[in-house]
Amino acid sequence: MHTIVDRDDDSSSGSATTASRPAQAGSQAVAASSLAGAWRRFAVRRLIGLVTNIILLIFVTFFIVQLIPGDPASAIAGEDASQAQVDQIRVELGLDQPLLLQLGSYVAHVVQGDFGTSFHYKVPALQIVGAAAPYTISIAFTSLVIFLVIGLALGMAVGIITRGDRHRWLDHSFNIGAGVVSSIPAYVQATILVTVFAVWLALLPPAYSPAYSVVQSAILPVAALSIGCIASIARIVRRETSVILEQDYMRTARGWRLGSGTLYAKHMLPNLLTTALTLSGIILTALLGSTLIVEAVFAWPGIGSVVVQAISEYKDYPVIRASVFMIGTISLVFNLLIDVVLGLVDPRTLGDDRG
């Protein structure tokens, strides 16, 4: 009798185990389907947002040149030109037409990828900006990677060292120092870097020059763009590190005597990455704005140098519009990439309607 019961029990246990396997497989399939659906909704949402922002950007690029003082026709004609010559150039450029008619013509051409012909260079404006864009993208992307990696590592390190009110002097000094550094404008940092490393120490070129390699010329511009961002990211990450270290799951992990690599890299880093990537999306817009100024300081042949010259000297509307559009598009694409990486790191953010 006992033998029969034992067999029944074993049979019941095996049946339960067998039944649980399809249930587990089913739950995994549901989770995978839910994640795929979240990615589809994310893609649709971001695509709609991208198209909407590009449409708004087209209108912004048209109207922004109206705020620039000066007359392009007068700049092209020169100081000694007569009013008749200036008026003739204005007619040739189409600047004599009503504003709404100019807007309609501009939108119709931009949809076809035509921002007009440069007033000064007499070539398509997008060609000029396209040639400068790789230089801007290179230092902006490099700065983004550097301030994320170094800022994250620095903030984590200080947060771990000062855990539980240890080394309070380091905590206060770091907060004050990071706050001061992050408040210094990038162009001021660029000037300081040139003075120290190019003038005093003569280690690096003060500006872009064919006499030096592109890497050598890029070191100071990238540093000027990265230093303030590193301080901003590190300051926030240090505070987040202190909060995470006091969470119950981190206390439990420390109680298990896990190694430092497992404890910090596996259990803490993913949460910090979410914070750092979210912040980088916010900082990126300011970084691109700073890039335009820093490029002018270092004579870096990027969009910044092109747009500054187009505004200050030539009043070159097509180049200005193409430059602003390109910078806006770069910002949108970078933010989209950050959102994708953020979704891969933490799929919960796929349902977040930020930006």
Rank of each mutant, 00 (worst) to 15 (best):
L67V: 03
F62A: 08
A108M: 05
F63N: 00
L93E: 12
F63M: 01
R45F: 13
I48L: 15
A108W: 02
A75R: 15
F59H: 10
L99A: 03
S74Y: 02
T52N: 14
V91T: 08
L100E: 03
G94L: 07
L56G: 13
A108K: 08
L103P: 10
V107A: 08
A73M: 02
Q112W: 01
G70V: 03
V44P: 13
F63W: 07
V91K: 13
V107E: 13
L47Y: 14
T61L: 02
Q97W: 09
A84P: 07
Q85W: 00
V60E: 08
I54E: 14
Q102R: 15
I68C: 02
L50A: 11
L67D: 00
I89E: 10
I76L: 15
H109E: 04
D80N: 09
N53L: 11
I54Y: 13
V44D: 09
Q97A: 10
L101M: 08
V91S: 10
Q83W: 08
S74H: 01
V110I: 07
Q112G: 00
Q97T: 06
V44K: 11
T61E: 05
V51N: 15
A43H: 08
D80V: 03
L95I: 06
V60L: 11
G104I: 08
A108R: 10
I54C: 14
V44M: 11
Q112K: 08
F62Y: 12
V110F: 06
Q83R: 13
L103N: 09
L100A: 10
T61Y: 01
T61C: 03
F63P: 05
I64N: 05
P72T: 00
L101E: 14
A43Q: 06
L47S: 15
F62G: 06
S105I: 00
S105H: 11
D87T: 07
V44R: 15
Q88D: 06
I64A: 12
L101Q: 15
R90Y: 03
G104T: 11
V107S: 13
I58C: 15
Q97F: 03
I54L: 15
Q102H: 15
V111C: 07
Q97E: 12
I68D: 12
G104Q: 11
I68T: 06
V60G: 01
P72D: 02
P98M: 02
A108L: 02
Q102Y: 14
